[in-house]
Amino acid sequence: MGNVIEIQNLTKTYGKSRGVNDISLTVEQGDIFGFLGPNGAGKSTTIRSMLGMIHYQAGSIELLGLDAKTHQKDILRQVGYMPSEAMFYPSMKVKDVIKFAADARKMNCDKEAEYLCKKLEVNIDKRISELSLGNRKKVSIVCAMQHKPKLFIFDEPTSGLDPLMQEVFFDLILEYNKQGATCFLSSHVLSEVKRYCKNATIIREGKIIATDSVENLSHSDVRHIKLWRNGKLEEFVHQGDINELLQQLQGTKIDDLLIEQPSLDEVFMHYYEQ
């Protein structure tokens, strides 16, 4: 399988402010790839560089085998993008926005749009100005998916969506993924990355600090230990080989012992705070 996203040594600065610094990452076709990082880490800068909204100073970006600088229109034809702020023209009706997005692609997406609107419970006769953030997000999902793109790029897609709609949204991603689409999911909701993504990268202060499978990233050799000895509770953290801990405890009389894995949030917080 080829790479759908290939970013090499991307650097973008805003005057004296940092954007992203020398980042490289690749995403394989068919992957659901998580892009994790705290606020201001450079996630949106990376995505906006990929889509040609901002011009980067160094490095290269290839999406679907095409150079992002020279083949922007060809790339955008095959990409479905959902921005973190789902903003549309307030005076327009939902159905007109959806139609406008399809017409701009010179495609008739009526059938798929109808299917998506039904699944997401979108009221197409309402005006954008009457919609809440969550409902605008749903319109944004329809606009990003109706043309069945090869690559999805989502920037904080679930903020504003209720849990039920989040479930529907991820069902749709899995459905398109089964048909061969690749998904690049920028998020700071760790649970959804853990649940749906196969691989992920963690970005902090404009630099990539880890890239691996989500399973490996969320694995840690840190354990929370609760030990009851002589009627007293002792709590401590053990990091390293678990056999060393067992050796330490050998020969001592223990009333009870609880060994816990750190939560996913704690593992990722460890990356963020490095």
Partner: peptide
């Protein structure tokens, strides 16, 4: 100003 540039500029128009 209306934050619609992200929607418009990511449509394949150039």
């Amino acid at each position: 100003e209306g934050h619609t540039s992200e929607f418009l500029s990511t449509l394949p128009m150039g």
